[in-house]
Nucleic acid binder design. Sequence first.
DNA 1: ATTAATCACACTACCAGTAG
DNA 2: CTACTGGTAGTGTGATTAAT
Length: 422
Amino acid sequence: FADNRVPSDEDQFVLVSPDEEPLLSDKGRMRIDAYDAAPISLGLAAEQRAAIKTLYRGSALDMAIVERIPSKTDRTLGDYWKHEPGLHCGQGYQVATRSKDDSFLQGKRALRANYSEHPFLVLEDALDPYRPQGLHRPRSPEIYQAPLVLVREGSKADRGEGRALFSDCDLAYSESYYGFSAANHPNGQFLCRYLLVLIHGKVFEYLSLMTSAKFGVERESLQLRDVESLPFVPPGKLGKDHRAAIKACFAKLIANQPDWTELDRTVAQIYGLSERDQQTIADTLSTRAPFAAAKKRAIKSVTLKEAELFRARLETELANVLSASGHRVQVSMTNSPDRHLPWRFLSIALNDRPTPPELPARWIEQADDLAASRITLIDAHEPCLTVGLLDRYRYWTPTQARLLASDLLWEHGAMLEERARR
DNA sequence: ATTAATCACACTACCAGTAG
DNA sequence: CTACTGGTAGTGTGATTAAT
């Protein structure tokens, strides 16, 4: 028998999050391999509350980015909006029992949850006036005053359909919106524009996916705390260029001609994210978001072009490290010995050594039994490796190439260099 | 083989209960 | 009091089956 005892911070448990694999699911099987299992120490889980969610939806690279995004500022959107005078925020009203007085909403326009006149802007003329009939939770009157940004509780896969609305007129809105009012703030107009741009950037969706307790777990909607926990660089700390870029992005949104590339670049600069970080964010969103399009993309087989991009990226990443000790690296796509295998193979060789012509068939049978998503075969003598990756796009993004490179260097780098020297 | 009809599932909005 | 959780009804959508 075992005794229970209180674990220490260093004790670990293993987080297993199997990926969707329709071919196996249909047969009632599940793929759980070493790459789906992440050891997590209790200390980490306690200190970084979103760590488990981040690793469930992302990778070690995502952990690093999520940790780094807040470093440009010392406060969140919620901190700023609650403490700065003249700003108010909160969830919209709840109808339910209609037991409380809501006459203060008289005269404002009523915004319904299914409003769709414009994805980013509230058109006053399209709305009927609000008729007070009592409310269960009317909320405080300040949160309904223009200028307003209303973040939708639920968001569509396509951000072109709008994640938040900007309004120049007072509105009565329901709990389907999280409202941010800047009615009594001297810089209110700019604040609301800035917020609308931030909400539509990839960074916000990414952070929601990596840290929200609701979005990407329970259902595809947000909690108020997800919006409020967005790291916020106060307008005073933005450079002139950033302010101009924000205004330009806002104008394009209002014209319903959003320039997503420019908007994402602007937001990334505000948070100080590098090109690599942006690539990782884009890859994670495109393969791990909870929307149908991303799920489909994740399990699609790779095209020749994607495979070539992956090969080139892997070669560059390996060379970055190995060239320091004077070695050359070649990565090439290898023809699979059997077309029916679910993997595609890459071989990695140092200093023009020949790569093994054939893969030993028995290895592959064994790997199939083990249901592995990645197989690594080491040559008996030469400084060569062959890696098989499941033919699913989720394993073939540029970010996955970086992860594979660092895994290979960590596990086999020393062996490769040692053999190459002989 | 193509189109129409049906079914099953997924999603959204809404209501209500609860912890703190 | 606020925000989160959980349940449900209504609606939209995709997949499958039936009919042409």
